[in-house]
């Protein structure tokens, strides 16, 4: 026990960049990673991948706080057997081509309009805008106790046949709605 504890302490001291000390990792680097990781734990209907190339699109709508960090997070990786690409969208109507979409719109009215435009598309919408879930978004990123957490609105996701996995829901801070088998 003592040695185990000593090992822990040693590990902490040798590696000061423990995840709990989050400030070291840049906020948007982490958020980019989260975007990518959501893709792992959500199942899309086959119809979502309409493009001939069948790539997995990680999109950003509106203001892009990531810059190059999103491209770094993707860096030629694959998810669900598909190559991942990053795309920026100006128009909410175009953003339906994305599978995971970061919505960088903070204005509530503009946000609602954008989400309404995407309502029928199997797009996992993610944002760190407060009240995103209330506005009809699916995943809201928040910082709590200096740690990045997220809430999930299962009902909204289910309307477009997106299926967040139980593992993801377990990690979510708050889950709105319940998953129902249709």
């Amino acid at each position: 026990m003592r040695r185990f504890a000593a090992g822990l302490v040693a590990a902490c001291m040798l590696l000061p960049a423990v995840p709990r000390c989050q400030t070291v990792v840049e906020e948007y680097q982490l958020k980019a990673a989260f975007l990518f990781n959501f893709a792992r734990y959500v199942t899309w209907p086959e119809s979502a991948f309409s493009g001939a190339d069948g790539v997995f699109v990680l999109g950003v709508l509106g203001a892009d706080p990531f810059g190059h960090r999103l491209d770094e997070a993707i860096d030629g990786r694959e998810v669900q057997g598909r190559r991942v690409v990053a795309r920026r969208f100006e128009n909410p109507a175009d953003a339906g081509a994305a599978q995971v979409l970061y919505v960088g719109i903070s204005d509530p009215i503009a946000l609602r309009q954008a989400l309404a435009a995407l309502a029928r598309r199997p797009v996992l919408t993610v944002s760190d805008t407060e009240g995103f879930l209330a506005a009809g978004g699916m995943i809201e990123l928040r910082t709590e106790d200096r740690r990045l957490r997220f809430d999930v609105n299962v009902d909204v996701a289910q309307q477009v046949s997106l299926r967040p996995s139980a593992q993801l829901l377990k990690l979510a801070k708050n889950v709105r709605g319940t998953w129902r088998e249709r």
Binding site: M1, R2, R3, F4, A5, G7, L8, V18
Partner: peptide
């Protein structure tokens, strides 16, 4: 980096 750990109380000879 150490992410999470578990150690049983009373366990010895552990490292």
């Amino acid at each position: 980096r150490l992410f999470a750990s578990f150690s049983r109380e009373g366990a010895s000879e552990n490292s």
